[in-house]
């Protein structure tokens, strides 16, 4: 199976390990992975700020970049959802809309791809630790991926998963929200961090770099010992236990 990898801006610049792990994991599962170099950002920051003309141009660029792919797999539920949204940006019935719709049909978030397309729930990973998982809003509510990450994590040897209380609450990131309404955003991330600490887990996992950056930034500021990792990094761990 041929996969064009969509790394997202944060994945490219900050969470390089997540991208590396995802590529290695997909290869481990028998996929052939390429990286279309022309890829940029999905345009979500502009879209959510109301700059729709600008987003349209970005969308066209990404459609062109990925349209020859067999599958596109991304490591952020939120950015993958944005690609799915392109369909609604273009004029009803237009050529661009058709192209966007084709792209939508073959674009998946990593865990969704592994569970739904590869039909794999046990990736053969092992990792020693006590972890809790942050369900990010866009991935669960908008993309509709709710079960896949849990299925995969349940099968990681050595990993103990603890439920995160109030897990459906937003972590307060919200893109420009975290800057524009920083005082409210701070309270939200604080609440999230409280719940994480409550679990006594030493590891926080998630499938969205932006939420992890937000929560991780707060944990680090608090001097917390909780480590933050992208789910791909755990799924790609195959150390001896």
């Amino acid at each position: 199976m041929k996969i064009s990898f969509f790394v997202t801006c944060l994945g490219d610049m900050f969470y390089v390990n997540a991208g590396k792990a995802a590529v290695e994991l997909l290869e481990h599962l028998g996929c052939e992975v390429d990286f279309p170099k022309a890829q940029t950002c999905c345009g979500q920051p502009a879209y959510n700020s109301g700059y729709h003309k600008e987003t349209l141009e970005v969308a066209k660029h990404l459609v062109e970049t990925f349209e020859d792919a067999e599958y596109v797999v991304g490591i952020s539920g939120s950015c993958v959802y944005m690609i799915h949204e392109y369909v609604h940006l273009f004029e009803e019935g237009s050529e661009w809309q058709k192209r966007a719709s084709k792209l939508k049909d073959k674009t998946y978030e990593l865990t969704q791809f592994i569970v739904d397309v590869l039909d794999v729930e046990d990736v053969g990973a092992s990792y020693e630790g006590v972890a809790t998982y942050h369900t990010s809003c866009h991935m669960t509510r908008l993309l509709g991926v709710t079960e896949a990450p849990f299925r995969l994590l349940e099968n990681v040897k050595g990993l103990q998963m603890i439920d995160l209380p109030n897990r459906h609450d937003c972590c307060g990131f919200g893109g420009t929200f975290s800057v524009k309404m920083s005082d409210i955003s701070e309270q939200m991330v604080d609440e999230k961090v409280e719940h994480i600490e409550e679990t006594k887990a030493n590891l926080l996992l998630g499938a969205d770099g932006s939420c992890l950056m937000n929560i991780g930034g707060r944990l680090s500021r608090n001097g917390s010992s909780v480590e933050v990792k992208h789910i791909a990094e755990i799924l790609n761990s195959r150390g001896d236990l």
């Binding site: 490219d12 900050f14 920083s182």
Partner: peptide
């Protein structure tokens, strides 16, 4: 505004695309 309550990661020296 971000760093009022949170740390922000510094961009990695080797980007993903370089690694790939």
């Amino acid at each position: 505004h971000w760093t009022h309550a949170r740390d922000f990661p510094q961009p990695a020296n080797e980007r993903f695309r370089d690694w790939f």
